[in-house]
Design a binder for these strands. Structure first.
Lengths: 346, 346
DNA sequence: GTGAAAGCGCTAACAC
DNA sequence: GTGTTAGCGCTTTCAC
């Protein structure tokens, strides 16, 4: 009975056909595929030739049943954050030259959706997970990390052993913002933040708030002169928050948006209210994402070296997949990128 | 011998354990899982109870070996295009209430990368593929469509039977741009386009060029008075192209960016050169993506109802997965969304 | 309506 | 160095 194609998934070429064509065993083909030890050069060549001849592509799900799928799952909390593309570039860097492919699950700021996506990724047998800007409680992330190697970006949990993290020093960055604004001559800096206290201390916006407030206190500001306003309902809430801030008795002369995508909204809102930037109000963001450099934005921002964060996160994940069981938590030092939006007139 | 956990992938609960717990066969559990016929209500209830009790989650790779993975692969040509998030919202709409999860492969405008990603998606046993803004030759897409159901968005190939497509009428949209600009009183509209002739007639930018040029000719413009300038090297090339356009003997008084993300660059470049928008130069984009509405952009654009396109594409894909073999090609009619960037002063 | 068992494509333990 | 084979978790005939 000779029915090679019967019942095959999508009629694809299988390892068995490659083995037949090359005149070797399926085990041999598997070894060549995995670049495992115990294959002679002659056999490797024969097998590779047959694979090329038949345009063989290994079936990932089948591999996953026993070994690896060579797939990295990436949970991206939000597709509209202009900082994330940079991280993705870094992930691509880190995966270059390997067999691994990144596949993305895209959230929308809701932690229940994020849970669903992460489960979907684990169920689909990803070899490891990178979580970008997610908002799950640390305990949940630890639970996931028991099932599969995990690295988080944008989530501070330096004491956990269960997973790795790649971050910049957000508390230091927040302080740098305050110091920079005061150095430029601004007298009343305010911050517009995420205001999601439920996220706990691991949240990057919270860290930035801490640093921002601490630096202002160090410069002599009293508690009730430190304005940190939450825009809780997300982007749509920014304009209202800006309006309220600027309508106060002693309005700020500079506004720090906790992340660029917030700061860009602030910029737009401030101008819509008739203020000039940077003359009336200085604006500063965080992330130094691509839109900062656009002429009409020209937004000062804090550079957290996203591409490098992505690259390092990937390196750490591959190490975990290879067997490392201790935790690594890397922290980049942020850098101020001064642009026109904070250029105080002399 | 009682060794339920031995050798299990990640120590997960399997269908066998659910079967034991519920006191039924694995086949019965599988049927409940797939909501297949031939299960009594009593058994269904028992099985569901055990699944919940053990927090069972089916292993997608294993399912994929015989049946479906309930995963939709989405090739997204580019993560920075602000139009795509809207399509994703539509895909989420279309998948709501089903077992399907979308997983994304993210390209960067290179067709070889896109080929790699699509193969990765197919090898990982996706039940179907949605391709957004991809740049593969039709023949390649047809080859993929022989392996797995495919729907494309942003690629015109109305005569192929191999896959479905969801588009707006880009040729009509291009014409609407020209008609609208002339109606606003602009005298010399120009277009900045992708200029990738290698993509062939299926490309949306090409369709928009055709419509734009045809409408100008219909309004009495001669061939050499119709300016359609390519910015071939992508976004970085836009500023240079704008500068060249405006430095000519008879510079345009309005510029059409073939897509919003180009038009936003045009806006920035025009202002950087010292021109006022819309007084000196009118600007119009295409896609009506979220940034158009930002105060400082206030960009007129063509609405192609992205969310609906995403939703319809998903519907078509699910139909294909369910067995439809004839092709469907849907075309939405575009709509002008007039904003400040084309408000000719009286 | 229910269950036993074959088998999807691959990996890995083990025999040779 | 090379091949044989059990089995990963599930779906799907096919008996009963």
């Amino acid at each position: 009975m000779d029915r090679p194609a019967s019942g095959r998934i999508g009629g694809r070429v299988t390892i068995r056909e490659v083995a037949e064509d090359a005149g070797v065993s399926v085990a041999a083909v598997s070894k060549v595929l995995r670049e495992a030890y115990g294959v002679s050069d002659a056999m490797r060549l024969k097998v590779r030739a047959s694979m090329a001849k038949l345009s063989y592509r290994p079936h990932s799900a089948a591999r996953g049943m026993r070994g690896q799928t060579y797939t990295i799952g990436v949970l991206m909390a939000d597709i509209k954050n202009p900082f994330f593309p940079e991280l993705i570039d870094g992930i691509d860097d880190g995966l270059a030259g390997t067999q691994y492919v990144p596949l993305f699950g895209i959230g929308r700021g809701s932690s229940s959706l994020e849970t669903t996506i992460v489960h979907a990724l684990v169920d689909r047998q990803m070899d490891g997970l990178i979580m970008i800007g997610q908002r799950l409680p640390t305990a949940d992330v630890e639970a996931i990390a028991r099932e599969v190697p995990v690295v988080v970006i944008g989530h501070h949990e330096p004491n956990t052993m269960a997973f790795d993290s790649a971050n910049n020093d957000d508390e230091r960055g927040g302080a740098m913002v305050a110091e920079f604004l005061l150095g430029q001559g601004y007298k009343r800096p305010a911050m517009i933040t995420l205001g999601r206290d439920d996220l706990g201390g691991a949240d990057v916006s919270h860290k930035r708030e801490l640093g921002f407030a601490a630096a202002l206190r160090a410069a002599g500001f009293a508690g009730d002169n430190i304005y940190i306003a939450p825009a809780e309902d997300g982007l749509d809430d920014v304009t209202a928050t800006v309006r309220a801030l600027l309508a106060g008795a002693e309005p700020p002369d500079a506004i720090f948006g906790w992340a660029d995508y917030y700061a860009l909204e602030v910029l737009s809102a401030v101008r819509a209210l008739g203020f000039r930037v940077p003359d009336d109000i200085g604006i500063i963001g965080y992330d130094n994402s691509a839109p900062c450099a656009f002429t009409q934005n020209d937004l000062t921002s804090i550079d957290q070296s996203g591409r490098e964060l992505g690259r390092e996160a990937t390196r750490m994940l591959l190490e975990r997949i290879a067997g490392r069981t201790t935790a690594q938590h890397m922290i980049k030092t942020p850098i101020v990128r001064a642009r026109g939006s904070t250029q105080r007139p002399a």
